[in-house]
Each structure stands twice: as structure tokens, then as C-alpha cells.
Design a binder for these strands. Sequence first.
DNA 1: TCATTAACTTGACTCATTCCAGAAAAGACG
DNA 2: CGTCTTTTCTGGAATGAGTCAAGTTAATGA
Lengths: 144, 144
Amino acid sequence: MPTASDFERMLRGASLRVTAPRIAVLSAVHTHPHADTDSIIGVVRQNLGAVSHQAVYDVLRALTGAGLLRRIEPQGSVARYEARVGDNHHHVVCRSCGAIADVDCAVGHAPCMDASDDHGFVIDEAEVIYWGTCPVCTTAAKSS
Amino acid sequence: MPTASDFERMLRGASLRVTAPRIAVLSAVHTHPHADTDSIIGVVRQNLGAVSHQAVYDVLRALTGAGLLRRIEPQGSVARYEARVGDNHHHVVCRSCGAIADVDCAVGHAPCMDASDDHGFVIDEAEVIYWGTCPVCTTAAKSS
DNA sequence: TCATTAACTTGACTCATTCCAGAAAAGACG
DNA sequence: CGTCTTTTCTGGAATGAGTCAAGTTAATGA
């Protein structure tokens, strides 16, 4: 788990100013992967006290733009954030409870990047979302 | 292009009642692939006159649930609908203008279905979105 | 044709996210 | 260390896609 000074280094590395809300948000996303904005606000407030929701939205956007965070928003869900960036990985989402888990890319280095017919598009990223049922919900469904 | 009676047959096949709004929505989505809800409302009203937005939302949900339409919502975009269902295909989205194009699945029958570590999830669908720049925006960027 | 039940209308409402303007703090520089 | 400039934070209002609820209308099937 990165420390506050690690977060500070990350911010400086991205030429972003170092502020308490930013460190708190970074830390919150690291400890709560795939959390939605509201949960992040809650965690940040637990650590810092009063922080406006606007500040958290701003920080999330700034950090996402700087590449320190990644924003994901599966259908039917609000925006969620995660700290794993730069390694091409994807997600499994549970249709029943909305749980999200990370999935490393199945097919090697730059996978799924081959569209059969790209219609002239210049493709720079392939985003994959697996839909299914998580272990908990699968068990619950069987026993009912 | 399917006719009104084709749409009627599709609705009956899904044991849904045949109503003017439903046929109009089906037709609108067929003629305007990847249209958002608002555009669909516009097209439907051009054909039928007054139709409440609620009716269109209801119809879209009913038809999506019945498998006659498919709902897609790329990040940063509102919900969009398309009529191509049942054939595993994906989408390319232009980062610049938001244009969407269909892409047939690159890797054969049930592709991308192999997550390297599924965390115990039972996966039933893999959704792929390619991000890039469409031909129009690529050209525009070059000439500037 | 009539009864039943699903679908549509209207209008208010929710809720994530964004916009705005002023106050505060951070970093740079002398 | 103190001032200046820029960026960030606060608080509140606004936006907009989508939903809820109650009542009316119309499709279906006997």
C-alpha cells in the first residue's frame, strides 16, 4: 500500500499541486478499488473532515486526466474509479449485485486490438467488459 | 429494410402487444442505428405526432428486455439503441465526435470470452468497445 | 361485443454530475 | 520570509437523463 509521500510523489510527477483532498482521494481509491464517487466522498470525509463534493469531483477529474486514476462506468452504474492504470486490464461485472473484479488481458500484449473491419477508424484502445454472475450471487441463486 | 408488418411480426413473436408507438420506435431504431433516446423520440414524433417521452422510454425498455433491441452506452454518452441483435458484434467509438460504427467480432465464434482469471465469475457475455478516431476527425486533425 | 390487462399520458420528481462566483491555499520568486 | 499569481476549494444553484405514480386508453382473447 502506497504511503502519503508516495501519493505526493505521484502528484508532483504529474505536475499537479499537492493538496490534502488530492492525497485523500488517491488514498481512498487505492484502498477502495472500483468505488463510486459517493463512496469516495465518504471515505475522504472520514479522513479529512469536511470536503465539498465539488472538490472530490474536481480532483477525480484532474487525476483521471493526469493518468493517475482510471474511470470506468459499466452500464447501469454510476462512474467508478480505480488506481490500476497503465496495465491493460479489463473488468468482470456481476449482473446481479454489480460487483466488479479485475481481469488481466487474456490474449497477450495488446489484445483485442484487432477489429475485423475498422471502418477507417484509427483505434487506440480496446475496452472489454465481461458480464456474468459473481461467486456469491451464483451460490445464492443455486440454494434458492 | 423491414416493413411495418415485419415489425408487427417481431412484436408478436416476443408476445408483446402491437401498438403504434412500438412500431414507430422499432422503425426509428432500424433507420437510425446508434441513435440516442432523444433522437428516437424526435423521429417517432415525426411519424406519429404526439408521443410522450415516457412512452418511448417504456417501449425502449420493453423491446430491449424482449431482445428486439440492444442498448449501448459508451462512457460519456447517453444511452443509444441499435437493432442488430443476436449476432455478437462490437463497436468503435470516435473519441472526437462520438460517432459509432459496428465491428464484427474479430476472433471467431465466442470471442474474447476467455478471461485469464475469472475470479469465480460465471461469464456469459464479453462486451468490447474500441476507442479511436473516425476517418472524418482524422482528416480534420491532419489538415489543421 | 365485453372484460381484462397491458400500454400510454401527464406531470412531478430523483440523483449524478456540472456550472458559477467568490474565498482560500499552494507554489514561485525576489 | 513576504508578496504575487495561479490553481483549488466552498457552497449553492442548475442541468438533464431517466424514473415513479396515478389515471386513462386501447389491444387482446373469450
